[in-house]
Amino acid sequence: MTAIMAGPVVEGAPHDHDVNEDGELIACVVCDALHTVPTIPPKAALRCVRCGNVLLRSPGPALDRILASAFTTVILVVSALFFPFLQISASGFTSATTLVETAFAFKGGLTTPLTFVLIFTIIVLPIIRALALTWAVMPIRLNLRPLPQAKAAFRLANLLRPWSMIEVFIVGVVVALVKIGGMAKVGLGLAFWELLLILIIVILEATSLCEKTIWRILERKSRY
């Protein structure tokens, strides 16, 4: 039986069908179609011929962006814990909250378990994820041997990705502020602006992180 290897479509680069050196194969994680891996030109994405899903990307500045976003996330989230977050005033009364107090908003009564959900989704998991990414990616970027448990760290970072919800929280904050807007004067603290910055960074990271590409690099670097 002659196997017909689908030649992958290279996007953003001239089609160049002189195929790879070592005959490496990759299967599409979405549809299982088998492809041979050519040398990927800079700024190009290798797409599945059947479903169009990205198989691999040329790394480009992806590692730098991952590290930059990891550093800033840790710095911003941690410092946001200590700066004023939000304040309102109306008819002589004022009240304020910090990020930590917001995380504890569900304390007391039947909603207490939600306290853990909030602390984890908006504070703990984003920090753990950023640290895990740094652990896995930093040595690669510096052309060093991967640290012990680098693969475990990268697996953890990917596992936590859907559950680290800081950017969803920020949009929630904005919605809440508009809700309050009519009845009180709102003061925005430094922590609020830091979180807004994280929103942009998280979106930047999401568009540059290609999990499969990093895995391939990690495997190659672990060999030596």
Partner: peptide
Amino acid sequence: SMIDVFVVAVLAALVNLGFVVNFKPGIAAF
């Protein structure tokens, strides 16, 4: 979808103007 849960958290934590107005989270959030 978690937005609404976060909105409730912010409202409950932030708006506590004594007798005038305050918010408490409900069990539906859970």
